[in-house]
Nucleic acid binder design. Structure first.
Lengths: 149, 149
DNA sequence: CCAAACTGGTTTCATTTGTAACCATCGAAA
DNA sequence: TTTCGATGGTTACAAATGAAACCAGTTTGG
């Protein structure tokens, strides 16, 4: 019987690595501010782009709309963002960070960057380049071939 | 204010990629047999190693013991594995796939391998090498530096 | 011996997630 | 216009998850 070596199976390795990295990184938004990952991504998206709709947020940060919806609701509850109705389309709301939201964002960004730097610093230049464009290539590969349903 | 480019932030990219790959791959165990990821990993671990304890399974496949426990319970319910009490330590059980479990495993392995091959086939040799040892290097990096409490 | 600390594994409970249904609004076509 | 399909966003419900408590059974140290 043919067997599969899980330890060297790419989907598994990738997931395990991403999970481990993500768990480590979560310290920055979870332990210090009690944010979930969707909340962090929402904050991050708005911090980066200024104002976005929920749909745009979902696309930018690869989250399902229910995750976005819930994350936005929680950040609003904290008064970290506000909603402004669109003038032409009453279904749409534009989301913007408040001062408090921006402050939290501004505080976390340097930590996030330091985290990434710390990680990459342990690799050789070749390994860094390898993983960075390996990831990019795989993403392209994944979305080129099997167009989903 | 300093901003973070989420799209190029390694933890995010890595997670998004792993998630996408994992979702695609799930078709092989979920859509066809209704397995969850922990159940698939359990099946895979036992298929590969023959007989293991729950603890060993958890280590091998990076799962929390509750996940293992539940996955084992479900596979047992399907009669895909059996438990044999350890002779010396009555806390321990040795898990083994039944004929039915092995059959399912044997059916999925070629599909899993084909999936991985298909993915890697879309990369150049350099990209393949890059990502493979980039992942390995990152894992080492992650577990070397910040020894968790 | 016996208590205390530890280990393998399960269960409970709260939180997070995914799916699908839903509501409102909008745009296009009849 | 009216109707019908798409779209922005929320909600309800079921399933998956994580943390911590738990129940054996085992080891260690006094």
């Amino acid at each position: 019987m043919e067997i599969l070596d899980l330890e060297n199976f790419l989907p598994y390795r990738l997931y395990r690595l991403a999970d481990a990295v993500s768990r480590e990184f979560a310290g920055i938004y979870k332990d210090s501010h009690g944010l979930t990952r969707p909340e962090w991504r929402t904050l991050s998206g708005l911090g980066q782009h200024g104002t976005m709709t929920a749909t745009a947020l979902g696309e930018q940060s690869a989250m399902h709309k229910t995750k976005v919806s819930r994350a936005v609701a929680e950040l609003e509850r904290r008064h970290w963002l506000t909603r402004t109705p669109d003038e032409n389309d009453r279904r749409v709301e534009h989301l913007t960070l408040t001062k408090a939201g921006l402050a939290a964002y501004g505080e976390m960004v340097p930590l996030a960057k330091a985290f990434e730097r710390g990680l990459l610093a342990k690799l050789t230049a070749g390994e860094r380049a390898g993983i960075i464009n390996g990831v990019a290539a795989l993403e392209v590969a994944l979305y080129r071939p099997v167009e989903k349903q």
